[in-house]
Design a protein around this nucleic acid. Structure first.
Lengths: 209, 209, 209, 209
DNA sequence: TATGAATGAGCTTTCATTCAT
DNA sequence: TATGAATGAAAGCTCATTCAT
């Protein structure tokens, strides 16, 4: 609050900024060349800093990937968490809400395929331990999704015997598949809209209606 | 038919057997340690052969992965292709068929999580080119799935305006998510059954019914 | 002489023929790709035989090179030894003889640059020991040359204080340089004739006349 | 001039020094064991540095050989270029000059047989491309020699119809042969003197005088 | 704090040689 | 006798990480 130790504060601030810069640069090169094909020198080169400097901010190559993944997961989750599970009181409201969320989410996928690449591709296979971590992120998304389902069950507009956990996970599968599809889509925006429509349709109506 | 050139035949047979052995061993170590953490020496060691021998049968490390992936994809696809898309004439029949397919598929996942690991994890991120190849396998599964949907649309028990391609892809997402879930499931068989039930339910009825 | 053990004789003959074939094939590939870049498989492949067969006729890779070098040296020396050192009784006769020898020798170089490559390039640097062996061949040529010079000194048409050994060696240097020049000559025959003329001229008259 | 950026200067200087050290070490081991028998580890070991360090200064094994050869060629050529072709106006002066050059050159050979080994043996056969490069060095020596001959023709103390190019090349052959001879000479200095005498004699007088 | 020179573990790959068939 | 499958020593090279400056 006070002006005391401002110099130290500024230093800490600059350090924080540099950490963020490095995470950003690593995100870029990891998604471009892939985690294993990327060298620390590539990350440092992207920023124009010495690669020794990297080690003043991160433990090692794996460490930066963990941070990049966490950052990416946070970005993705913020898109889902933007809405409030408890806000909806009817199926129609929930469906509208779902469409909004899918729109935001799939727009994010269409606009930053790097994020998809990182969370659904690179992070998944960097090493066995990170597979677990990334699957944890998937689980976190599933849990976020489950909150909405539970609200519906609680409010009565979703059936009481819905297997909330597995269903939520299945929906995450749809999200993953959408992300991977947009990765190679010729027209990502058009593809995104097809996914929003077809995705919410199968989710709410099933394929038969 | 005749006994002529039996020696050469036997040699070719043994070579083919050895190739299969190497693919099998590579499958095992790739799924255990991950592609990048695996050395050729690990594959050779698994078989108790000299690592120079490996290079008599495969070009290089990438080559064996491609073969392992192809083998895994074939195994997975054969489970789906086992049924005949045109066999069903009503929604009820299709639903029963779907349950059978899911049962076989998810049983495969539960019994050989390595296959899941390979097709949905390792193969996806070994290198950018292999990501494409693996996404191609996903597309192949989606196309297999689409055949069933198209049969339903054609027969009239599925709505004419169903977005078959995207819906099929979405279902592949469910399959992927199921595979990944079973990877860490405490009781894979029980989990498998939940996925069969919840999966077919959301697929046919949507979440609302 | 008798017909006894003809079968064994024929076998030995065939073996000898095959040794010669292998030497010939090795000569070809060594001069094309260089000794170190050549594999045993290349030699065997050139002959269409299994590479295991190679080892039934030669100890190892170095062994075949020694034989190839010996064969090449023999061919080169036979061109020099074709004449009789004692045949000439005057400077004019010796000069005519030298021109004949040079003609034969340089024609050999022009026609089979591979022989040059082998004796003055590959053999020289295959390994330290073979350098000695090849320098021995050079010395053998020098000794052959020295015989002619000694005849001249003995007959009195060359000065008594001529340093026969070193001069002979110097002439070998001219031969080597001619060989290497023809290796990259655009018109080897024309170049050959220039070397015969200029070479005998400097040898007999020095540069000043 | 100023003290500015002295640190960077010193770094560059040290780097240059290290490059020179590596060239020097490589020169030594290449001439001892031969190019192909030498490993990068041998070069690094000679200097007591890690072999990874080698790759900070040179692209690969071939790269260092090229540099070693260039360095050796420069040293040899500097001995020839020390004199001025145009300095002599009579045959006697040219002969004296030639003797001086031969003295310096053959002394270099006697004192550093490694240089001979490198330029006339190793460099010649390391690989086909380097054969060309080394023959290029021989051509450069021939061209240097040709300058002297042309001076004599121009001044009139050498015959107008002298085939300068081929004669120069022939003299290079004598130089090569001298170098190779000194390689195995029991008493290199005595041998050197014989070559100076016999070499200049045959060059200027031919064998007959 | 920033740097990049130095390091060496560890990898992929080659190929001369052996030997069972 | 002819073969080629099997082998593993050995080499070149990369790159994450350390640390003196």
């Amino acid at each position: 609050m006070s002006g005391v130790s401002t110099a130290a504060d500024r230093a800490a601030e600059r350090a924080e900024q540099r950490r963020a810069d490095i995470v950003h640069a690593a995100f870029k090169v990891f998604t471009q060349r892939g985690y294993h094909a990327t060298g620390i020198a590539d990350i440092a080169g992207e920023l124009g800093i010495g690669h020794g400097t990297f080690y003043r901010y991160f433990e090692n190559k794996r460490d930066i990937l963990v941070h990049v993944l966490a950052d990416a997961a946070k970005r993705l989750l913020s898109v889902i968490d933007f809405d409030e599970p408890g806000d909806t009181d009817s199926l129609a409201e929930y469906r509208a809400q779902t469409e909004r969320i899918c729109h935001r989410l799939f727009t994010l996928f269409a606009e930053s395929p790097e994020l998809v690449r990182l969370l659904f591709v690179e992070g998944l296979a960097a090493d066995p331990e990170l597979t677990e971590l990334t699957l944890g992120t998937h689980r976190a998304i599933a849990e976020g999704t489950a909150l909405y389902l539970r609200n519906g069950v609680h409010k009565g507009f979703l059936p009481a015997d819905l297997d909330v956990e597995v269903t939520a996970h299945a929906l995450v599968g749809v999200i993953i598949s959408c992300g991977l599809s947009l990765l190679t889509a010729a027209d990502p925006v058009a593809e995104r809209d097809r996914w929003i429509r077809a995705g919410t349709r199968v989710m709410f109506d099933g394929i038969a209606h």
